[in-house]
Nucleic acid binder design. Structure first.
Length: 511
RNA sequence: GUUCCGUUAGUAUAAUGGUUAGUACGCUUGACUUUCUAUCAAGAUAUAAGAGUUCGAUUCUCUUACGGAAUACCA
């Protein structure tokens, strides 16, 4: 690659970033890093009405948690700044005027009501209203193409509201290149004269986006597929300015897990899974939306899952660290079709990451949970070694750190009650007597190791000729309180002789 | 409605002008652990439909169907 790679993620601060946005950011980041390029965050806040105060901070925090740091952006290496479009307001007018002067754009004075009226009329006739060469000079619309120069100047001087529209060229088949989709063709006659500059003095997305991408020397525009229909306008704008256009790549959309349409911000609450990387507080409604972080997902697991939504390296490896992703990432291998979000697969990634984490690291995360649940009620003090051992025994059944406690509470507290169904099944009339005998066996064991207990107990069961189930099931029930948990002899060894025997006695007394 | 984009099992995807169309999640069954939400093993399920090009197409072309997006003084 001869030119420097500079890509940008350009969200609009109208609310929290959802995982589709995170994936767009991720792909931009991976592409930039792969080519030693620059990843830029630009805040596209040209719509005053939809602006949400805490959204920008959320976006920044979310990218940080996801480990997708930007090289340039608000308050960071502002060489091409500012990076908020609201702070670049003055820049855009100049470029809009340039287009007017070169007859690539024109003033339009039509009111929103008049345009709505047109749309309605067209709809009644089953036609679509398009503001373009069909009608822009036919006199029904009010713009500088039909008005005299004097009239236009008078209106502007008067303070009449106006917008600036792009004068789309006619009779041309545009052939565009998309890195992911290949050739995309469109007839310019079906395009409409998009508004570039709004009557409130702000540019629309289209103008601001092109001007900023040019000024910030963006080399590749990597964005969601919803922008594909706008690519023609954008290419035409680059041409009108006589600028070199960047390369484009339109990413497939992330679709709802069930039903129709693309994943939307509301789906999380409706379908019962997070759509946001982190929890988000809506400050006007005070509603809290759940986030992957708070639900217990690891950031690297989320990122790995997202990377595989619409892309894969072409090998059978599925687990990749961020650095490995950077190495193997290739825009050309991104899929064209929309990808349905799959919660099961997401959990699988999380599970894999949990299994691969060091137990010593996991203890740090588990400690607060143990301490909160214990609150001085444990049967002894539990050192880090003990806690780590517990994790090693139950980890494979867990997906989240928050699963640990349910899987391991019996390592810390004596069962308070016994699972009713299991008790009925496992505890028979002669069980108490058998347990008394088991206690005798256990008492005799000096080295209370897993292996030792196992051989001694099994020897005894075999010599008594009484099916394993009659002993093992009540034994487990006594120690755990339910028919669950890891290898029973591991549990006994961990609890120690005294606690093990005392639990059996307690069970005998209760059941 | 119009324009653009897309379509390999339930889902995410791999591969190829000639293969038993691969993998993962999920699902089913079995084994093991005489517990399980774990583990192991086995299994079922796919090239949307039709036509054309070709000795041969899932792969290239066209049509249809279906899906998605866009069609705002939102991004």
């Amino acid at each position: 690659m001869t030119n420097e790679v500079r890509v940008r993620f350009a969200p609009s601060p109208t609310g929290p970033l959802h995982i589709g946005g995170v994936r767009t950011a991720l792909f931009n980041y991976l592409f930039a890093k792969k080519y030693n390029g620059t990843f830029i965050l630009r805040i596209e806040d040209t719509d005053k009405n939809r602006y949400v105060a805490n959204a920008e901070q959320y976006i920044i925090d979310a990218l940080k948690w996801c480990n997708i740091p930007f090289d340039e952006g608000p308050n960071k290496n502002e060489e091409f700044g500012p990076y908020r479009q609201s702070e670049r307001k003055e820049i855009y007018k100049k470029y809009a005027d340039f287009l007017i002067k070169n007859e690539k754009a024109y003033y339009a004075f039509d009111t929103a009501e008049a345009l709505n009226e047109e749309r309605k009329n067209h709809e009644e006739q089953k036609k679509t209203f398009i503001y373009n060469w069909h009608n822009r000079e036919k006199g029904r619309l009010v713009n500088s193409l039909v008005l005299s120069t004097e009239e236009v100047e008078k209106r502007i001087k008067n303070g009449d509201k106006y917008v600036i529209r792009f004068k789309t060229p006619t009779n041309e088949t545009l052939i565009m290149q998309d890195i992911i989709r290949g050739e995309v063709k469109i007839d310019t006659n079906v395009l409409d004269d998009k508004i570039l500059f709004k009557s409130d003095g702000m540019p629309t997305y289209h103008l601001a986006n092109i001007v900023d991408d040019h000024l910030m020397k963006i080399s590749h525009v990597i964005r969601g597929e919803e922008w594909l229909p706008s690519m023609a306008l954008h290419i035409l704008l680059y041409r009108a300015f006589d600028w070199k256009a960047p390369e484009f790549a339109h990413l497939p959309l992330i679709l709802k897990p069930t039903g129709k349409g693309k994943l939307s911000k509301r789906d999380g609450d409706k379908l019962g899974f997070p759509v946001f990387p982190m929890e988000y507080l809506n400050e006007t409604t005070n509603e809290v939306s759940r986030g992957y972080k708070e639900d217990g997902y690891f950031n690297d697991a989320l990122i790995n899952m997202l990377a595989f939504l619409g892309w894969n390296p072409g090998t059978e490896q599925e687990l990749f660290s961020l650095d490995e992703l950077i190495q193997v990432f290739d825009l050309k291998k991104v899929n064209k079709a929309g990808a349905r979000f799959d919660l099961d697969k997401t959990k699988w990634f999380q599970n894999q990451y949990l299994q691969n984490k060091n137990n010593t690291d996991l203890v740090e995360l588990f400690n607060p949970i143990i301490d909160a649940n214990l609150d001085g009620n444990g049967f002894k003090d539990f050192n880090t070694e003990y806690r780590t051992k517990v994790i090693s025994l139950i980890k494979e059944r867990a997906t989240f750190v928050s699963d640990f406690w349910n899987l391991s509470n019996f390592f810390f507290i004596t069962p308070l009650e016994y699972d009713v169904k299991a008790s009925k099944k496992a505890w028979k009339e002669d069980t108490n007597n058998l347990m008394e005998e088991l206690i005798v066996i256990l008492t005799a064991i000096t080295d209370f190791s897993t292996e030792n207990i196992e051989t001694k107990v099994k020897e005894w069961i075999t010599s008594k000729e009484i099916g394993f189930g009659k002993i093992m099931q009540p034994f487990r029930l006594s120690l755990v309180g339910a028919m669950k948990g890891p290898h029973i002899f591991d549990i006994a060894s961990m609890l120690g002789k005294e606690e093990t025997i005392s639990r059996i006695q307690k069970a005998c007394a209760t059941l």
